[in-house]
Design a binder for these strands. Structure first.
Length: 467
RNA sequence: GGUGAGGUGGCAGAGCGGCUAUGCGUUCGCCUGCAAAGCGAAUCUAUAGGGGUUCGAAUCCCUUCCUCACCUCCA
């Protein structure tokens, strides 16, 4: 498959011959995760599912940044330890992202548990004269790394004149960034240069090199991490190992809110907890995959509502399939649906193989749904057609990480009994009684589908915004 | 100011030299005891403006205008 690489500004073939090693920059655990985090993580989760579906081995690592000034500030504010803050938000993370149906990464390394690795890295960087000790900490000397700026396409002289760089007289060059910051308050660690805390960028270098080695396949994150985070990671890692760091840099576009950047200061962030309660996992996932991953996506209520409509069609399709009868299929229908199923499946995979175009892929998915619903609408959906469509539909659902609401066996029995009862009333033209039963069924989250010859039902996911 | 990505029908969103996806929306139908869900038909022939290149451009080149992001922490 091809993936657009930010560094070479071109699509590159992903090497899947052995295994695919992916390092995704995770969250800093100082506050609730929001829809922006969710998008990036859902994109990578879906990528991982897609690769694994094809039998490709994926080693997927996603870190937690659990040492950071923002965590410490929050801890001070709440008068608890930094560890209490990070533990809380890590716990929340797993609850929320499990709900989003995000598969657990192979590993979630924490910065605090890899300080020794970082110190080792810094040591080598000092030995190789890429880093130096100042009175405030250890700094990476950007001028020693001529390729600095190659990822973010920035020129070092322009960066200096930009004058937005950190002011610190103890640095040799304003562009130099901290590998280690001296500190006397907790949390702090001992180092050969004095007690303190690691810089942000060094943690990802240390953990990715430790678990994935140099020259791994994909390094990912949000677009906003390109500079300075990923630029600095490259500088450190390449200087340290003399090897290429990552083969492909894959960056996910930002989520905006009604066209505006989402930010704490604007007060327009949407937490994962909030959007889960409002829309549910399926809608959020479909929304996050609705456009190309590299482009920005706008969180607008109308768009999300549209997604509900589409999801209802998928639910309908699924239940029509599994509840289809054993009548004889029309051979022409069989031929036609087989054609469409194979065609949409091919489109689905081709789209994902082409720079992970989920927009096109979901389009193919919905076309298969539509074709199935067409057959169902004209009473021509029978079990032999299910045999063709359902396996493909389930593959797509699985790759997209979507989950149809199911019902327990005893509930099915109850539903069927109620349907029989309603049919009896309907035959007797006791429509009020029939409608009362329909209401009872609907209260169970079940919607009846009245076909000419039979009555089917579907379980509808309860979506918060619909009350 | 620098860098990058873009500007496509009412909206979302593909296509990236010829065959003008797809979805949502809207309207009217079908189905139904009535609904719901679903389906059908109609609607919409779009490619920021101006120049080029070409037999032919949304797609390539130049130019103008506009939008967004990053350039400080950020997924």
């Amino acid at each position: 498959m091809k993936i657009f690489d930010t560094l070479s500004v071109a699509e590159k073939e992903l090497d899947t011959s052995d295994r695919v090693r992916i390092y995704l920059c995770g969250v800093t655990v100082y506050d609730d995760s929001h829809i922006g985090h969710a998008r990036t993580i859902i994109v990578f989760d879906t990528l991982r599912r897609f690769l694994e579906f094809q039998g490709i081995k994926v080693k997927f690592i996603q870190n937690f940044t659990d040492v950071d000034d923002k965590i410490i500030n929050r801890a001070v504010l709440e008068n608890v330890s930094a560890d209490a803050i990070s533990s809380r938000y890590i716990a929340n993370y797993f609850v929320e992202f499990d709900h989003l149906n995000v598969k657990r990464a192979g590993m979630y390394p924490k910065a605090t548990e890899h300080v020794d690795d970082m110190i080792g890295l810094i040591k080598t960087l000092i030995e190789k004269k890429f880093a130096y000790v100042s009175s405030n900490g250890v700094y990476f000397s950007v001028s020693k790394f001529p390729e600095y700026g190659k990822l973010s396409k920035k020129k070092t002289d322009e960066l200096v004149s930009g004058a937005r760089v950190e002011v610190d007289e103890t640095k040799k060059d304003p562009l130099d960034f901290a590998l280690w910051k001296f500190a006397n308050e907790e949390p702090k660690w001992q180092s050969p240069w004095g007690s303190g805390r690691p810089g942000w960028h060094i943690e990802c270098s240390a953990m990715s090199l430790k678990y994935l080695g140099a020259d791994f396949e994909i390094h990912g994150g949000g677009r906003d991490l390109i500079f300075p985070h990923h630029e600095n990671e490259i500088a450190q890692s390449v200087s340290y190992s003399d090897k290429n760091f990552a083969k492909i840099w894959m960056h996910v576009g930002m989520v905006t809110i009604n066209g505006e950047k989402m930010s704490k200061s604007l007060g327009n962030t949407k937490s994962v907890d909030f959007v889960l309660k409002k829309w549910g996992a399926n809608i959020i996932r479909l929304f996050c995959l609705s456009g190309h991953y590299s482009k920005p996506i706008d969180y607008a209520e109308d768009m999300l509502k549209e997604t509900i409509t589409k999801w209802r069609q998928v639910e309908n399709c699924y239940y029509e399939l599994i509840l289809s009868g054993n009548e004889q299929a029309n051979p022409e229908d069989m031929k036609e649906i087989e054609r469409i199923a194979n065609e949409t499946k091919k489109e689905f995979f081709d789209a994902l193989n082409s720079d992970f175009n989920t927009s096109l892929a979901t389009g193919a998915f919905f076309r298969l749904v539509k074709a199935t619903n067409q057959l169902a609408a004209s009473e021509r959906l029978v079990s032999s057609i299910t045999g063709i469509v359902l396996p493909i539909l389930e593959q797509m659902l699985d790759i997209l990480g979507l989950k149809i609401s199911r019902v327990a066996e005893e509930e099915k029995k109850k539903i069927n009994d109620l349907i029989d009862k309603r049919n009896m009333f309907r035959n007797q033209k006791k429509f009020q009684d029939a409608d009362a039963i329909r209401k009872e069924i609907s209260d169970m989250g079940i919607v009846l589908i009245d076909h000419k010859k039979k009555v089917l039902w579907m379980k509808q996911e309860k979506i918060g915004v619909e009350g």
